[in-house]
Design a protein around this nucleic acid. Sequence first.
DNA 1: CTCCTTTACTTAAACGTTTAAGTAAGTTAT
DNA 2: ATAACTTACTTAAACGTTTAAGTAAAGGAG
Lengths: 338, 338
Amino acid sequence: MVQKKRPTLYDVAKQANVSIATVSNVLNNKDEASEETIKRVNEVIKQIGYSRNESARSLKRGESKLIGLIVPDNNPFFTEILDGIQQECEYYDWQVVVANSEESEKRQNQLIELLSAQQVSGIILAPVSETLSTTKIKENAPIVLIDREVENVKLPVIKADNIDGCYKATKKLLKNGHKRIGLILASPGISTTVQRKQGYVEALSSQNIQIDEELIQFGGNYTGTKAQINGGYQAVMRMMNLPSPPTAIFATNHLLMIGALKAIKEQNLSIPKDISFIGFDDHPWQEISSPKLTIVSQPAFEMGRQAIHALHKLKTKDEVITASLPLKLIIRESCGTV
Amino acid sequence: MVQKKRPTLYDVAKQANVSIATVSNVLNNKDEASEETIKRVNEVIKQIGYSRNESARSLKRGESKLIGLIVPDNNPFFTEILDGIQQECEYYDWQVVVANSEESEKRQNQLIELLSAQQVSGIILAPVSETLSTTKIKENAPIVLIDREVENVKLPVIKADNIDGCYKATKKLLKNGHKRIGLILASPGISTTVQRKQGYVEALSSQNIQIDEELIQFGGNYTGTKAQINGGYQAVMRMMNLPSPPTAIFATNHLLMIGALKAIKEQNLSIPKDISFIGFDDHPWQEISSPKLTIVSQPAFEMGRQAIHALHKLKTKDEVITASLPLKLIIRESCGTV
DNA sequence: CTCCTTTACTTAAACGTTTAAGTAAGTTAT
DNA sequence: ATAACTTACTTAAACGTTTAAGTAAAGGAG
């Protein structure tokens, strides 16, 4: 594995008969060199295949061209966020280092430090807990929250308008005549869960329907794809064993939805004839599912883009942007009457 | 956005009454300090919350703790690979910067340089073309190929045994009595396509069945999820319009499969009654699909892990590991008789 | 008690940038 | 004609590590 040594500023400077400072200035478009010199330097750069040693640059500037992304898992939702982040990073000439907190707060905090040690320009964080240690925020890279918020610190946050999205979905089921609507939520400890529940509750309240806590089931206390799917499955099973089971079910994330649908199928219930259903997140396979699923769709890609934008604003103008992007209720067959 | 300055080796050294060299040695477990000093230094480190400036370290060592991952898109297959890579990187204390080549060779080559400029320890690359510029390999970070191989250079490669996997799948369809089997492939320019076709051809040849080129359709000349799905869709449409259409279809990647299934559905054909089907890649939603899909399953997570392992071996022992991991044919309902 | 080794350090240079400060020549203002 | 400014550079220090080379003290061998 003999790797050729990369040329440095010195090599360029020597060849172009200027000092390294001049080369550096040309590289950074500092406009302090003559047209001629700029041309000559650029030619040498191309000729000997020079490119910057970013470690050296980061050391001097105290900041690298990397930004960190910390997600709790690599499910398709976060992958789509990553996609948006990557696209927007293109513009700012940033690159993304991705880390997986596995829904563990301890790991999350370690990762923040690891990334800061890399001198990242900033961190996009989908936090796993309801609060965030303030020293973490003061002493490390600038942080923008994505998807989920925390209570104790004021940070930029790009999220979905979960309350409104779930309000709309629940309203739709109510409009279709349902009074007993089962709600399947992920783990209680994150803001999305709280807000999704709130949307549901507000919708029921708006029709003066009493909340039945037995119809609200948590299915996401576990981590991992299989466990989450199982959580959705078990949640439905519990509901259907109630003396008065729900006539409609709303599953508030993708994996919970898959588990829920599995349980419904096993119970030999037909959607939407026997039970109505609304799920979460739109993915390609839903084009071929039957019945076609009514779902709440999140603008994940756009969230990724805006998070990077918010990070840039935070860094350059100290502006704390927070955005709550609208969720779209995509009405298809599974919720009954369209 | 006033970010507190991170403490340096000097700060630790001063507090612990030693030189920075000693602190560095303690940090790197160089075992040249007394028990007492080690303890004292570690205490100070914890107390003032010191962690290394990785840019400085990378500059001095000529190598960072980052590894680059270049994928052509962020589809679930590559996400699972990323998962495996992240897990294995944990062990080597590496972090992953992900880049998306968007199936463009030009972009891929730019990314290799960008990552090398970051002094990455190595690059895991899913190449977009059949060859790779040799200067790229000589002058940049060590590269391990994943999923796809290239012809002109000898690099470690961790791939799936596509020939065997597709041979088995085709054989299964033949065993179930099919003679006219439609094959849907991605773009012609990558090794996986070539090998998947080869497996199919070998299976047919083993039964002395003549290859009908009209039954081999490329659906993946386009980039992007929608385009790929459409490619699968169009491929089926073309096949079904043949004078003598296939009685079975084998779609050799996930998105092509979804498009193919969509077309089959639209043609009002029932699987497996009217047409048999085998697809590619197992994902959670398939638990609730009907009919249950017979698919060729790739060990993506394991490929990611092994790629990192191969990279490490390449770096430490100059060993060029290549592995061709077995594909599993998971037989369910869609291919007819089980 | 000398010499040699080992232990436990310290000193100082180097990695490849960026940038503040300096300079020399040319241009403009008065 | 001289001062003041501008242009186009150069010099040198600094960022925070790692590491080769040096050193001083302690321990052991002869």
